[in-house]
Nucleic acid binder design. Sequence first.
DNA 1: GGTGAAATCCTACTTGTCTAGGAAAAATAC
DNA 2: GTATTTTTCCTAGACAAGTAGGATTTCACC
Lengths: 216, 216
Amino acid sequence: MVTADSRARLLELATLRGVSLSSLSELIGRNSTYLQQFIRKGSPRKLEETDRRTLARFFGVAESELGAPEEKSVQAAGSVRRGDWVDVPRLALGASAGPGALAGEEAAIGTFRFASRWLREQGLDPAQLSAIRVEGDSMEGTLRDGDEILVDRTPRPVRDGIHVVRAGDALLVKRLDTAQPGKVVLVSDNPAYRPIELTPDEVQVIGRVVWKSGRL
Amino acid sequence: MVTADSRARLLELATLRGVSLSSLSELIGRNSTYLQQFIRKGSPRKLEETDRRTLARFFGVAESELGAPEEKSVQAAGSVRRGDWVDVPRLALGASAGPGALAGEEAAIGTFRFASRWLREQGLDPAQLSAIRVEGDSMEGTLRDGDEILVDRTPRPVRDGIHVVRAGDALLVKRLDTAQPGKVVLVSDNPAYRPIELTPDEVQVIGRVVWKSGRL
DNA sequence: GGTGAAATCCTACTTGTCTAGGAAAAATAC
DNA sequence: GTATTTTTCCTAGACAAGTAGGATTTCACC
């Protein structure tokens, strides 16, 4: 059962993210029809562990969704067709990260791979994107500890929605509520945390969260 | 200037919504390369008014975005390649619509056309969708009076986000805040309206707003 | 009616994906 | 070591999209 599920899941992920199965096949260093065959002919009964890892990492999902029992830590892999995807820098971000984080000086801890086409369809500019791992449970319900999120740092008029903001020294991922004029409210989706009311100049919006592993 | 803009805009809309230019060309009853040529060769200097209408209506944008001075009311049109798009029923919805609205008995006032592929990519089931025109300004800032929205009526555990809900006799489009346990707060993005706090059984969630003309 | 420009269509070519089937290689069983 | 299965690759075909260029058609104007 797991096998059939993982095949369907893979197809779903590919469709959703706009990546062709052939390019995915090449990502894992196989013939371009490899994953096609996996999905339709069931040819490899199960994906090899390293393939599973690569794909899970690519999609930002748990390895178990692609047929593995459990997940370990992982390395990126794959030689890639030119232009097919974009490596988004993945930054370390603690809730207490000091000022300057995300400004470029902060060390990237690897990359996160997205299909160029998907980014284009979302209207996202690769140059403005960063990937970040969510820490803490303050957005529990929407974002869980360990979720990977994609942040669009394109300067824009502030809208409601989930953003990465700097308030004082802290970098936070919060739901931003601008409904009250002259105020910016940082809402934690986890009701255990109280909303923080600030004036607009106390908050620096770093970027908008446009995607999380799965869907936002 | 307007012409070049409208060409770029058309391309952008098509890309964003995952419709091929060829099928759009056929939607307006032209040769499959017609809009290609319009965009790249600038062959028709301007789209004809009826084409503009059809396309604007298809994308749910103002006619002026495609090169027209101003907009009037419009009829749907077009013979369509099979499977390429889906006609979503568009329902009349007043803020004071009585119970039963959206349950199927309510009159559809036409359809709204979406590319099947786009719906698939969004993970949306055509059968569960309705299009609705927003009335009122209570969500101003996010949704404007006259915006067309797409509602996914698939039953799901309630999440935060903009939903169509029934509270008493009224059908409302509100931001739903479920952060406080035992309560459902209906938030109007327009700060002129106060949030409404209700118990879960006073609110019936009709569906989730997954798209508005433009982007959500 | 003739002319020129714009609009529209058409056809051929290229590319990428997916499908289907069989061939070659590798692994496993006996 | 041979047979059998599984994995993997390869090739060819179908199809849709996009591109480019030329062939018609349409229409205004003289």
